[in-house]
Design a protein around this nucleic acid. Structure first.
Lengths: 227, 227
DNA sequence: GCGTTACGCTACGTCTCGTAGCGAAAGCCT
DNA sequence: AGGCTTTCGCTACGAGACGTAGCGTAACGC
């Protein structure tokens, strides 16, 4: 009965925060208030202490719960911080501003505003660094943070195509590839500007960035159509 | 005599790895072999353990030095890893391939190759995350990693301008701004592709990226010149 | 009310941290 | 050669965080 086949008996969330409801609906339910308090306390601790000095015991105290409760719900610091930071991206929306350039600028400014907050900066990059050695963690980040951003790119492109600002994609394969490319360029540039260069993503920068990206995409599309 | 005015008496490197030679040239010199062994051991530990599980005691053992020796030279984990990872970027060079597109593709592939190594992935992003709350660390990263990349951007642009592939900049202010923009776009896209999307920076991706970036820059330049 | 599950609390062994103190080694200088 | 200065290896230490176990109690469904 040594933990060989079942190395993960602990009822930790994993990726299924809610999907465990059908399995167990008897007994005392978990406090939803505690969840919210813990995640809020985690963000608060991230702001005050940063990633490296954040301890789970401190988070538990701030949230007003026992340390053991925290360990019953999350496997460790990584998973907890991912969930805490992911909530920040709930507010992301694609503004329907009528032109592709304005759409891009709007999304970039929103993304930059979230990333400028200290709890997002220190938390997000730390878990991304940890995710280089933890596939499950990478998947968790992808599902709760990255995909939410990516949907905006896809929706913005389809709108632009409907308006005739971008040509329709010839085949699904290249459509997916260019979507990935755009996504990496947009998110990558904003992250690098904010975290590595350490300079603000102000309107002047966004205008310049959008200009280069948009003209590059339009020119490439024209080239692809012509060639 | 409490450490109030002199909170940092320890002869730690700070940013001046070598500049302390004029101050003290008497007594037993520091072993240069130990430096190399420690940095190599740090990279080795990064590969095997990753950032979070890397301990300075373990690094000291791997390097064959005492733990105290390590603390006499580096202030902590952050500074040590920055120096260890920075050495990886020594090999960065700008290939003179004759065309701007080829230059960009060459640099991007080199950068991606370094970033694909596990010790660079987990180490670099972790210290960048820590640097969001530590200005001295950010400056250390900038000096030993970022500036080395940025020089390639500047040199590549000036070569392209000499070849007539890019128009000369009207004034130094916009020249600096566009250089920053290009740098954030190039480095950001590669980092995001590698670490967040988790997909390889292969030649197909690089070609597509270079195409968009180059046409965007050329179009913007034409627009700026025309308008 | 009864079974089941979550909760708060305490206590514990383990690990890492960063520092202090010592004697010995390795250089420069006269 | 001898002395001076700094580094090195080693040991030991208190402090703090980790992650877990065990217990009694609280909250829900049937």
């Amino acid at each position: 009965m040594i933990s060989l086949t079942a190395a993960r008996e602990t009822p930790v969330y994993g990726q299924d925060m809610q999907s465990r409801s059908p399995a167990s609906r008897t007994g005392r339910p978990r406090s939803a208030t505690a969840d919210a308090a813990i995640l809020a306390a985690t963000r608060e601790a991230l702001v005050e202490l940063g990633w490296s000095k954040l301890t789970l015991g401190d988070v538990a105290t701030r949230a007003g719960v026992a340390k053991t409760t925290l360990y019953r719900r999350w496997a460790g610091k990584n998973e907890l911080v991912v969930d805490a930071v992911a909530e920040l991206f709930d507010e992301l929306e694609l503004p329907d501003s009528g032109s592709l350039a304005a759409d891009i600028e709007g999304v970039v400014l929103q993304f930059a505003a979230i990333l400028a907050r200290p709890e997002a900066k220190s938390g997000l990059m730390a878990v991304v660094a940890e995710a280089t050695r933890d596939d499950a963690l990478r998947e968790r980040i992808r599902a709760s943070v990255v995909d939410r951003q990516k949907r905006l790119v896809l929706e913005g492109r389809s709108r632009a195509q409907a308006r005739g600002e971008l040509p329709p994609e010839p085949d699904p394969a290249t459509a997916s590839r260019t979507a990935d490319l755009i996504f990496d360029m947009v998110a990558g540039a904003v992250v690098h500007r904010t975290l590595v260069s350490g300079k603000p993503v102000d309107e002047a920068w966004v205008r310049g960035f959008t200009l280069v990206l948009l003209r590059g995409l339009a020119a490439e599309a024209a080239h692809t159509a012509a060639g």
